[in-house]
C-alpha cells in the first residue's frame, strides 16, 4: 500500500491519495457553503444578465477577452528583457547554424580547459 502511493522525494514524501482525500473534503465543505447561499436564484431568467452600470449588454463575441489582451502588464514590465530576447529569434537559418557552431566552440573550450 505504502509502496503504491507514497513517493520518497529525498527530503520528504508525496502521497497523492492523501492529497485527493484532502481535496475531496475541501470540495464537500465548498458544496455545503454553496448550498447555504441565495435560494431565490433562477437559471435562465434576467437574474443571469450582467449589470453594467445600467448600460445594455454588448454582443457576447465582443466581450470575450482575447489572448492578445492577457498578461499585458507582465509583458510591459518585462519589456527590457523581451526587447533583447525576442530579436534573437530571427527565423534565419544562418543564425541558427551560427548559434549551434558558437555553442560547440564554447563547449570545447570549457571541456578542454576544465579537463
Amino acid at each position: 500500500m505504502d509502496m503504491l502511493f507514497t513517493l520518497d522525494t529525498g527530503a520528504g514524501f508525496w502521497n497523492p491519495v492523501l492529497w485527493i482525500l484532502g481535496a475531496a473534503v475541501a470540495g464537500v465543505i465548498a458544496l455545503i457553503l454553496y448550498s447555504l447561499g441565495e435560494k431565490g436564484y433562477r437559471k435562465g431568467t434576467a437574474q443571469e444578465d450582467p449589470f453594467i452600470s445600467g448600460n445594455p449588454e454588448p454582443e457576447k463575441g465582443l466581450v470575450h477577452v482575447r489572448s492578445g489582451n492577457l498578461y499585458w502588464g507582465f509583458l510591459d514590465a518585462m519589456n527590457g528583457y523581451y526587447r533583447r530576447l525576442v530579436p534573437l529569434h530571427t527565423g534565419d537559418l544562418h543564425d541558427y547554424v551560427l548559434w549551434y557552431m558558437g555553442m560547440t566552440a564554447l563547449f570545447l573550450v570549457v571541456v578542454v580547459v576544465f579537463r
Binding site: 534573437l88 529569434h89 527565423g91 543564425d95 541558427y96 548559434w99 549551434y100 555553442m103 560547440t104 563547449f107 570545447l108 571541456v111
Partner: peptide, 20 residues
Amino acid sequence: LVLIIAALAMKCGAVPMHFW
C-alpha cells in the same frame, strides 16, 4: 564528446540551440 553533446543538445531543443 563536445561534438556529440552539442549535436544532441541541439536536437533535443536545448537553449540557445532551440531555434528550430
